[in-house]
């Protein structure tokens, strides 16, 4: 092989790699970019919903599952067209600061406090979620916290606040990871953990953890979809976003959400009209 042949071959490889790497279907409508929480993605809800949305409208939704904190940051920076999150106070600030157009409620599920079988800290009969946490703290039972500024983490911090406790000590583990990883960790350490019911149900078969406490209205976990403000960032795909939001709140979108089942259980509920 001569030098020129080699150079040509090498360039060809690079060119082919570039071509395949950058090849995108330009004829299709512009995809919508969405950051969302791990709880909607990891349960499989979004794969299922966005497949239907693509079929209905021809618009692809590229969703990036992260913690709510990072999801909102990307919205603030205009990196994405829309966010689907569950942290009402942070959402309110996002809209008030002018980064979000409007908070549109989509669905809800609830948080549960999971614990090892047998409920060693005895929280099952607590009067409220804050009571349950107080019980865990006084018995120094291990507790895994997301510690990642996600919606679930924010919720947990508010509950501690309500209970008037500032949790710290060896029993309080800040994982800094997603919900799934925290469940795995709690399962391994026989710890308590606050979790959205959707993720728990999706992973239940892998876990020994049981629902130790649920039912406090405080534990309702509302999800909202918010378009990033096109006045801040004019080149966002706002048209696609509007169709997505309309679809989410349409009877068809709502029915698909209500019909979504994992292991026969409904994960997400609709708000009463």
């Amino acid at each position: 092989m001569g030098i020129r042949t080699r150079v040509a071959l090498w360039l060809a490889v690079v060119a082919i790699a570039c071509w395949t790497g950058c090849g995108e279907d330009r004829a299709a409508p512009r995809p919508v970019k969405m950051t969302t929480t791990t709880s909607t993605a990891n349960t499989g809800l979004l794969d299922y919903l966005m497949g239907e949305f693509l079929r209905d409208t021809g618009i692809r939704v590229d969703f990036i599952a992260t913690g709510t904190g990072q999801a909102i940051t990307h919205g603030r920076n205009g990196d994405v067209d829309v966010i689907l999150v569950h942290a009402p106070p942070a959402e309110a600030r996002f809209v008030a600061d002018g980064f979000g157009v409007k908070r549109v409620p989509v669905m809800w599920n609830d948080f549960v406090i999971l614990g090892p079988p047998g409920d060693p800290a005895g929280i099952r009969a607590s009067a409220s979620a804050a009571d349950a946490l107080t019980q865990i703290a006084t018995s120094r039972a291990p507790f895994v916290s997301r510690g990642d500024d996600s919606g679930t983490h924010k919720k947990e911090l508010r509950l501690w606040q309500t209970a008037g406790i500032e949790p710290h000590g060896a029993w309080y583990v800040e994982a800094g990871q997603g919900m799934g990883a925290c469940l795995t960790m709690a399962n391994d350490k026989l710890a308590y953990v606050l979790c959205d019911r959707g993720t728990y149900l999706a992973m239940r078969e892998l876990l020994d953890l049981e629902v130790a406490y649920a039912g406090d209205p405080e534990l309702v976990n509302p999800y909202a979809i918010i378009a990033v403000n096109p006045e801040k960032y004019p080149d966002l795909n706002h048209a696609g976003t509007q169709r997505l939001i309309a679809w989410f709140t349409s009877p068809r979108g709502q029915k698909l959400i209500a019909d979504f089942r994992v292991n026969g259980e409904q994960l997400f509920h609709l708000f009463e009209p």
């Binding site: 990891n42 590229d62 990036i64 599952a65 919900m179 799934g180 469940l183 795995t184 992973m203 876990l207």
Partner: peptide
């Protein structure tokens, strides 16, 4: 992003996080 930027390693991370 599934089908766009999901690589084997990010898929591994995802699967691990889901247990």
């Amino acid at each position: 992003i599934r089908g766009l930027t999901r690589t084997v390693t990010t898929a591994i991370t995802l699967e691990t996080s889901q247990g």
